[in-house]
Write a protein that binds this DNA or RNA. Sequence first.
DNA 1: GTCGACATGTAAATTGTTACATGATTTA
DNA 2: TAAATCATGTAACAATTTACATGTCGAC
Lengths: 187, 187
Amino acid sequence: MFVIRIVLNMKNIIKPTLLDFAILGLIQNQPLSGYRIRKLFEQTALSNYSSSPGTIYPALKRMEQLGLIEKGVIKDSKKSPFQITSKGISILTSWFVKPIEKEDVEKRIDELLLRFAFMETLVDKKQKLLFLTTFSDYLSRYIKELKQHYHQQANEMPLHGKLALQHGVDTAMVTLKWCKKALIEIN
Amino acid sequence: MFVIRIVLNMKNIIKPTLLDFAILGLIQNQPLSGYRIRKLFEQTALSNYSSSPGTIYPALKRMEQLGLIEKGVIKDSKKSPFQITSKGISILTSWFVKPIEKEDVEKRIDELLLRFAFMETLVDKKQKLLFLTTFSDYLSRYIKELKQHYHQQANEMPLHGKLALQHGVDTAMVTLKWCKKALIEIN
DNA sequence: GTCGACATGTAAATTGTTACATGATTTA
DNA sequence: TAAATCATGTAACAATTTACATGTCGAC
């Protein structure tokens, strides 16, 4: 039996990776060369993202082809660092304001933190507050779930399992506290 | 110019992925089918690891070929869940007792927690204590570094940058506290 | 007898890692 | 002038995601 597979590879749907967003976030304010980006990734430790050339340079090429970044020319210099395009800004902004989901809070805290870290200039105060309150709400619910799970299962769980789960609760709680703090600072 | 590239693809050096270790950890005590493993990954939420069939089944095949797991046969049942082999146990154990490095604490906390969560039965108390104390030590140093970084750079940092960094400090500190608690519980 | 859960897989595309390779410029 | 750092890439490989595909079994 023959199956004709129609691939809907819509080129207008751009789905950058976390690494792509991290790069976009870094260059949103000032142009940076691939090398500078790598160094920032190494140093700031904010990132789990690899800074190896085999990661950064292909990513830059990819994003240039997608029109998210472009090579800028600097007078009196042979350097041509990458700068963000308006398309890049719009993609980055829509990442910032994308509604937070349950799963984000349970599995992708890092991504949420990255979004927050870079959203300073591109979104307004209202959006920032919405981000933090939604984040808080999902965190509260998640913590409740974890605690419930703990109390129901604690008897049958091995010690190390309990402790690992406890770590999950602890970090979720401290993140919740952090949200409250951040809400105050933003105001 | 011709270059003869000698590829040292030593087959005796097995480097399982985190997903592999998570699976090994799950089946170390009881055999599980691929499906059961997937469900556990979905439910326990302990894991960021994907539970899609395209992830789990190839991983199981890989590990079976490496001799880390094998299909066990259950009487009165057509099911043949995977069980860990002695080779699997030894690989898993050496992962547990692998010395913790600075980078692990700074970038791979998740992996450390996973190691801890599964090491209960396969390593002795001394190793567990060593694990936690080393973890603590690196965490303390890391927190010091982060705080130093914060105080040096805080003036020039944008608000969101400061807050994100603060979150890093907060979670590192809560993890340190967790280590102390766990040390007491283990004793 | 259909729906949902159980159960296991494959294929293509994408991503990321590791290792190699090269050359310019600065600094000691 | 040698070493270190700046700077940019490629190639081979390994791993993951997404989507497709199939079949069984029990419940209602």
